[in-house]
Structure formats: C-alpha cells, structure tokens
Design a protein around this nucleic acid. Sequence first.
DNA 1: AATGGGACCTGCGCGC
DNA 2: TGCGCGCAGGTCCCAT
Length: 267
Amino acid sequence: MPELPEVETVKRQLERAILSVKVNNVVINDARLIKGISAKMFTERITGCSFGKIIRRGKVLIIQLKKNLFLIIHLRISGWLMLSKTQEQYARVLFKLSNGTFLQFCDQRVLGEIKLVDDYKKLSIIERMGPEPLSVTEDRFIALFTGKKTKIKPLLMDQTFLAGIGNMYAQEALFCAGIHPEKSAVTLRTPTIKKLYQCLKKILTQAIKEKGSSVDTYRQLDGDQGCYKSYLNVYQRKGEPCTRCKKPIVRKAIAGRGTYFCPHCQN
DNA sequence: AATGGGACCTGCGCGC
DNA sequence: TGCGCGCAGGTCCCAT
C-alpha cells in the first residue's frame, strides 16, 4: 500500500521529472476519482498550467500549479503515479505534458482521490494530520502517547496521531520495537516508546532509500517496483519463521485489519 | 474517547 | 470448469 515511503519516493521523482513542465491537455478515463469538481471544470482549470512546488504531508501529495491552485493527490490503497509515453492499463486520469509524456494516475480499485483546491492547508485531512514521524522530536513523540488507551497498532495508523503510517509499516515498526500490536498505548514505558521512535525512523528511512515496497500495485514513477519488500519481517509472512526467534509469524484481525506479528518476540 | 460497523471499489483465491 | 463469496486496506461517516 502506498504509505509515507512510497509517497515520498514519488514526490522526489516528480520533483526531478516534471518541475516547470506544462500540462497541454487532460484525459479523464474515469471521473470517479475527481472529487468536488466536474471533469470539465477540472480539465479547464489545469490545462496550460505548469507544475511548481511539490509537497508531501503524510500520504497526501500536493502539487502547486499556480499561486492559489494546488493539485491534491491521494493514492489510497491501489493507486500509483506513472510517467510514460503511452497509456497504462488502469490509467484513470492522464495529464498530457509539453515534453511528450503522460503523467498518469493509475488506480486498480478506483478508491484514490484527486482534488483541486486554492489552499491545501485548509483541507480537513491536512488540518487534522498528526506530526511527521521523520521530523517530530523524541520528546514530542513520547508526549503523543499520554492518555491514549487504544491499542498501539490502530493508533499508529491513525493519521491524526502520526502522519503517513499505514498497515504495513505499523506492523514492521512494532516488530522492530518488540511491542505486541494489541498493547494499550498508555501502558508503554518511556524506553519502549523511545525504541519505537527509533524503529519508525530506521524503517521509514530505509524504505525511502529502497524506493518503497511494491507488495501490491504500487510502482515508482517509471513503473519499476520498490525494493523494500525484501526487508519486511512480518507483513504477509503468516506461518513463516520469525527472522529473530524462528517461531511462526501469526496473523490476526485487529480493529478490523489484518495484522502479522511474532507472539514470542512481541509482548 | 474508543470501538465497531458500513461504504467506497476491483481482482484474486477459495470452496463446492 | 465455473460460479459465488469473502477478503484485501485508506479514509470518512454514523452509531453505540
């Protein structure tokens, strides 16, 4: 799933590829992805614009088109962005660029979102977003846990708690820190929270270095797979031996989401 | 505050 | 072989 490292990878690749490039035309194969504006208006407002500053906040990609015009992209579960000369399968919205390529929003399950806003900071999802795990200080990270009685795993995935963590990296971080995913957050001791903080930083940094994890439909901007998949210790490894203790990894639905962990190493 | 469910979606793997 | 079903997960929304 596209989480922080995947969106950050695409953001960096877009910066190198499309900065100052102009949109000559917009092709909409599936208007369901475009929210809050008609396909016609969407096309009219974007055509002729050039790509400016690119920002990532959590899993949200923000591309500036003009002083007061921002393209907001959320890949959700099965979306990815691709830059190529020909139309891809699952290309739902395409931007025909002045350099002869298509910037394409591909999405197998059509759950992604594209918006056009004049001020991205006023978006509810942005306003409510928790701190970025790669820039929050350790002290502030520890303070986030006060009074949080909920299970640690769904809490990590709560975007208003911490930005950009999804189902996969939440599980990997908890394995790294040796924390059971159902442990109540408020019961964690400070050294354990510090360990989790370091694990998140380590995992997210390494995942960005490896250009994300292609466990599903996610691809890099050029269509290549992300390489972090081979580093995964628990995610989708049910029944396989724990990389630490060799006992089998188990899968359990926690807060309605599939969760993999080692009951021996995580407690 | 926390939790549980449903909705949005498509493709895949399962059982019969 | 083929069909129906459940599941996969990010976010929002509603109910308890």
